[in-house]
Each structure stands twice: as C-alpha cells, then as structure tokens.
C-alpha cells in the first residue's frame, strides 16, 4: 500500500499548476526516496523533475515501490475540488488501477477516485557536474523578465559573464536587453542575486518554455538558473523543507 498525507495541501496544487501545461501524462514514482516524477514535454525539448521527500509529509507509507500513471490535467481537476487549506491524503492499494484523493477540512471531508493509466516512460540520469554558471535570483524577477521579453521576441539569449547575467531577445519591433548584476542583500537573502561562474557561457532558448517554467513561481521566493558547458539550462525552484521542482531545457543551436 502507498499512502501520503500532506497538511499543506495547497502545495500539491501549486506543483500541478507548475507542470500540467508542460506535460500531459506522467508516472508518479513512490519509493523510500519520496514522491517523485520525471517527464518530458511532448516535443522532447524540456524535462521536468519533481521530488517531494518523505519527511515533508505528516505521514508517508510506501510498502513497495510503485509507479502511478496519471493524466496531469485530470489530477489538477481533482485537486481543484479540494479547498486551498485542506489536508490532502493520497492512497493507492497494491495492484489497484485507481488512486484515491481525500480532502479534509475542519468542516468535513471528500473522497475522489481517479483511474490510473499505463504510461511508458524512461528514467534519465542527470549529471550535475558539468555546470559552469549558476544564477540565484528572486523568482518573481525572473518571471517578470521572461514575460517582458516574450512581448518582444520568441527566443531569449542568456549570457553569464563577470558583469552579470544578461537576458536578450529580438523581434519585429526591435530588441530588448535586461542585465541583472550580483547584488547580495544580507538582511533579505531571498532578494539577492548571486552569480557563480567557472567560465562565461551564452546560449539561446525558446521563451514559450521559460514562461511555462515560471508557473512554479508561487512555490519559492527564489529560483536557481544553471547553464552547463553543453548549454543545457536548468531552472530550479526549491519546495520549502520538502524537495524541488527542476525544469531542464535544451538550447537552440546554430544550423
């Protein structure tokens, strides 16, 4: 049997809002490591990795590893049936082809059963060692930059140098360049912009995906943007005390 109980149920709602437009169907893997997911978008341009660790739940029981295939739009619909302050319990019996969501509030409870799906998926090894630039900044600022740039162009060039991180785009009406410099706020670390770089790096990415990733903004005050030497982009939002949601995005490359 698998069962988890999340007191702050709104957190799971925010997770679903962050990924449901990027990925249609995905396997949620339940193991001693936690409640996790790895899935690509249908075009295989982006990959999302989610981990919610067992100690973040009020109760977490996983007798054996199971993989629950879910349509994320349907899961989101069910989560919206619960109130924002509800406690959420998710339960699946071994061998069952359904999963049960229970919502509890001081006023009562509600149960929803959702059909599971068989989804073919592969797990991917993620090599963090090739990282050559890391930028941590306020997530709201990153969201604003992606939104502003997508009103001008379709693609953003992200360049990290000793000067800071530059986001640039070009469109029919002209060009846009936004530079964020390192800025460490000791009193409010969540408002800091911190840049760590082993070598300058620059690459371009579709803004449509970047804007999709920023739907995770309500999960965290800060976002960490990493670029590897192979120009793979990783955008990570930590989920307080529990884990993370990471988005990986493949670059646009010269023909």
């Amino acid at each position: 049997m698998f069962e988890l109980r999340l007191v702050q149920g709104s957190l799971l709602k925010k997770v679903l809002e962050a990924i449901k437009d990027l990925v249609n169907d995905a396997n949620f893997d339940c193991s001693a490591t936690g409640f996790s997911l790895q899935a690509m978008d249908p075009s295989h341009v982006a990959l999302v990795a989610l981990l919610l660790r067992p100690d973040g739940f009020e109760h977490y029981r996983c007798d054996r590893n199971i993989s629950m295939g879910m349509n994320l739009n349907n899961m989101s619909k069910i989560l919206k049936c619960g109130g924002n302050d509800d406690i959420i319990t998710i339960r699946a019996d071994d061998g069952s082809d359904t999963v049960t969501f229970m919502f509890e509030s001081p006023n009562g409870s509600a149960n929803f059963e959702m059909n599971l799906m068989d989804i073919d998926s592969e797990h991917h090894g993620i090599d963090e060692s090739k990282c050559c630039a890391v930028v941590r900044m306020p997530s709201s600022e990153f969201q604003r930059i992606c939104k502003v740039l997508s009103s001008i162009g379709d693609t953003v060039v992200i360049s990290v140098t000793n000067e800071g991180v530059q986001f640039s785009t070009r469109g029919d009406i002209g060009t846009a360049n936004i530079v964020c410099r390192q800025n460490i706020n000791v009193d409010k670390p969540e408002e800091s912009t911190v840049i760590e770089m082993s070598q300058p790096v620059s690459s371009q990415f579709p803004l449509r995906y970047m804007n999709s990733f920023t739907k995770a903004t309500p999960l965290s005050n800060t976002v960490t943007i990493s670029l590897t030497s192979e120009l793979l982009l990783a955008v990570e939002y930590t989920i307080a005390e529990m884990g993370y949601i990471r988005f990986y995005l493949a670059p646009k490359i010269e023909d």
Binding site: M40, V45, H123, G125, T155, Y248, K252, E254
Partner: peptide
C-alpha cells in the same frame, strides 16, 4: 538560422 535541439541528447537512460 538556429534549430531547437532535443533534451534526450543530454540525459542517459537509466
């Protein structure tokens, strides 16, 4: 011009 690469080339299957 530039073309979009796919994510699969960056990850090894487990």
């Amino acid at each position: 011009g530039s073309k979009q690469s796919t994510i699969t080339r960056f990850f090894s299957k487990i």
